[in-house]
């Protein structure tokens, strides 16, 4: 199994991304989210969890991590639009997620294509 050294910049960006993703987790408990429906916290929770999983993939320099991150970013944006969850948090999450995606794509070729 070939070992790919993780650039320091990826480490820093991934840690920041993990912290931002985990800070979004308490959103599941918000009364306003609960009021939208019984299954809305579950859907948002799955999105946040899979984003977290994708970042673990990026941390291990796996291409599936970047792919999953992009898929979950799109899912998150579509879900937020459907749920009408616009606001500062929504636009801010788009902003930093796009930055992360660009950064991950720069390093994409160096990453391992296996699971």
């Amino acid at each position: 199994m070939a070992h790919i050294t993780r650039p320091k910049s990826i480490s820093v960006v991934t840690i920041i991304a993990i912290v931002l993703i985990l800070l979004a987790f308490p959103m599941l408990f918000m009364p306003s989210v609960k009021r939208m429906g019984d299954f809305v916290p579950m859907i948002l929770g799955i999105i946040i969890t899979l984003q977290f999983v994708s970042l673990i993939g990026v941390w291990h320099m796996k291409q599936w991590g970047v792919q999953l991150f992009i898929v979950m970013f799109c899912t998150r944006v579509i879900t937020f639009m459907f749920l009408d969850l616009y606001g500062f948090r929504f636009y801010f999450s788009i902003f930093y997620s796009v930055l992360f995606i660009i950064f991950f794509l720069i390093h994409y070729r160096k990453m391992d294509g296996n699971l």
Binding site: L22, L28, F29, K34, D38, F39, P41, M42, G45, I46, I48, T49, F52, V53, I56
Partner: peptide, 17 residues
């Protein structure tokens, strides 16, 4: 539903690494 969802998601988050 919220309680079960949180349990499963915390299990995944803490167990995945």
């Amino acid at each position: 539903i919220l309680g079960l969802t949180i349990s499963v998601l915390i299990g995944i988050i803490s167990g995945f690494i």
